[in-house]
Amino acid sequence: MNFEAVKAIYIFEMARMRRTLLQSVVSPVLSTSLYFIVFGAAIGSRIEEIDGVPYGSFIVPGLMMLTLLQNSISNASFGIYFPKFVGTIYEVLSAPISFLEIVLGYVGAAATKSLILGTIILATAHLFVPIEIRHPFWMLFFLVATAVTFSLFGFIIGIWADNFEKLQLIPLLVVTPLVFLGGSFYSIEMLPEFWQKVTLANPVLYLISGFRWSFYETSDVSVEVSIAMILLFLALCLGLVWWIFKTGYRLKT
């Protein structure tokens, strides 16, 4: 195991994020505040409570998941796409490191940043609404597992993408709609029965539901199913990454 290399990539990637520190911190704080103003104040005044949880508090886990998913994907996909784009990937490919170590460095850094953002949002939300975390261990589990899984997913997108459009395509057209329709801001019980069934096909629902359970013990689906689903995604992404590693897909000619 080439720890120095993993460390080098990790530090290098974190430095890239530090350069945009202001933007990285200000934008989630701002957007969280906006969500609270729009959803919490405007809509929340009409929806008092969901499952006995005040609406403002109810949306916090969904809000965290939204940022976590978007940022994990964009950080990790950009992190590996950029060296491909400017050509510096040659150095990573010629270094005495395995693909696993490359993944550890890039995905580790992307997941770390997402976790930092998640924490910032939690803190910001705490200024607006009361928050309770009933199951801190599971809350951390969902947080870390989601950050890692979607950073892996982003890494795969970054390797697959050979232009900027493709890089934006999946996050924009797939992930963001899934998050919004996955019960970030509502309980699926509020939907007509038909749409409840449809929503069950949305993988993000399981993440948000499980995550919210760790806060308030209310969930749309059982928490065991949520845990199984996040582990399934993790396994899928790991499998894909392993396949890329085996075939050198889009990295080596």
């Binding site: 120095e4 290399a5 080098a8 530090i11 290098f12």
Partner: peptide, 12 residues
């Protein structure tokens, strides 16, 4: 930074 990074990448 970039030169130091290269050294790390090669495990030194």
């Amino acid at each position: 930074d970039t030169v130091s990074y290269s050294r790390g990448l090669f495990g030194k």
